[in-house]
Amino acid sequence: MKRKGMKRKLNETLTAYGFLLPNLLGLTLFVFVPMVYAFYVSLHEWNALSPKVFIGFDNYKEMASDKEWWNSVYRTLIFTVIYVPLLFAGSLFFAVMLNTMRQRFVGVARTMFLLPFAITSVISAVIWMFLYDPRNGFINQFFDLVGLPNQQFLGSTDQALLSIIIVIFWINLGYNMMIFLASIKEIPIDYYEAAKIDGATGWKAFWHITFPLLRPTSIFILVVTTIGSFQVFDQIMVMTKGGPANSTMVSVLYIYKQGFEFLNMGYASALAVVLFLIIFVLSLAQLRLYTKKD
């Protein structure tokens, strides 16, 4: 009996690693090895053109007093604090709404929400630049119509970051909504029927059944969106290049500037290692926080 249990356990372990093997290999080769290499580079002075010079932890020391870097980290955090809750609440809200609406139309509605996701980030950035244009842009023309003052949007240090958040929210809302919706659809209908007998409908049913049962998906969306918000790059590069006056210079953009514009590859790698640690700690905290509740 015991031996059989052991055998089963061994079998389970072997199957598990068998299932994990392609990804373990692939991720090691194509992500982990490059990551380790980036750490190795961070201990050097390297401009990609001439040989690397080992300088120990000097890049990290330099970073401590790099005001522009810490400003970019701060800006990234602001971005995250606004964007992540906005996207999370928005996509959950619309998923629930789509789940309760007339189901005949749900396919059309979902497609409408999902369409922005189909368009390349560069092109959506271009479209929004037209909409945001301070002089002829659609939004300001609309503001004229309803008697609101015209805004500078991407041309203003106060509004640029928020304008970009709106674009990225617009792109990702439908996709995350779809993931939520897929999970909501997985909740057995009996649960709701049982709750109905207890008098829990609408908001109550959401709070006591839907939301708790969505926990695995919610954790996923939160962690992935947080990680993603630290890596937003394309849209900012196209729309503002970090400007005006650095108001949208987030960490990844600053790393790119150091690495590929200044060709300070060593320093850029050191910044990336630190950014990695920041994301790592944040994600770990999120995972811990949400899984502990169980």
Binding site: L27, F30, V31, F32, V33, P34, M35, Y37, A38, V41, A48, V224, I227, F230, Q231, F233, V252, I255, Y256, G259, F260, M265, A268, S269, A272, L275, F276, I279, F280, S283
Partner: peptide, 13 residues
């Protein structure tokens, strides 16, 4: 492995 910005691992990759 999701947490590394792509631009940084571009050269080693």
């Amino acid at each position: 492995t999701m947490m590394v910005p792509f631009t940084v691992i571009m050269i080693p990759l």
